[in-house]
Amino acid sequence: MIKEAELVEQLKSEQHKDKAFGTLMSLYKERLYWHIRHIVKSHDDTDDVLQNTFIKVYRNINHFKGDSKLFSWMYRIATNESITFINKRAKQLQVSSEEVKKLAITNLSADVYFEGKTIQLKLQKAIATLPEKQQLIFNMKYFQDLKYKEISEILEITEGGLKASYHIAVKKIEAYLTNN
């Protein structure tokens, strides 16, 4: 497997950029897809955001300084793109971004690309009650099974704070599922 530093170097060179970008997409497309999908919920919206994310990565790779890992840099772009997408949708519909998220959950029951049972829908509703940062942490840890260290790099928060947030999120979800 190609080393990250080597891949970054190739992405920055005019000669190898396109080939390296293909490799990059193959490596991260599924992980980034699921990361975005858990934020925006619908497949079509996820597709839009994922494409925008990769285009942004392609255009801005020269600005990647290497202070963090390429992986966490891309996750950050995906997270920002997803949040921007929700905010834009909220502006279009003239409602708050919380309303947009609630609407996305409501639409899940009619979504052909959601085959979850009642309990999974309930879990999504429970996640939606969490603050934005806790939602991100829960989704990344629980569904994507990312390591605390990785999440810490992506969200730029300490591992200690991250663990505490995840623990609180789990407690809140348990309470929601028990009471509803």
Partner: peptide
């Protein structure tokens, strides 16, 4: 039942991951 499987219930259209790269390019 839900928490052990970590299945979110979300699915993806067939061949989606095979076509996404070309769409971006």
């Amino acid at each position: 039942s839900i928490l052990s499987g970590h299945d979110s219930g979300f699915t993806v259209p067939k061949q989606y991951f095979e076509t996404i790269e070309q769409a971006v390019i």
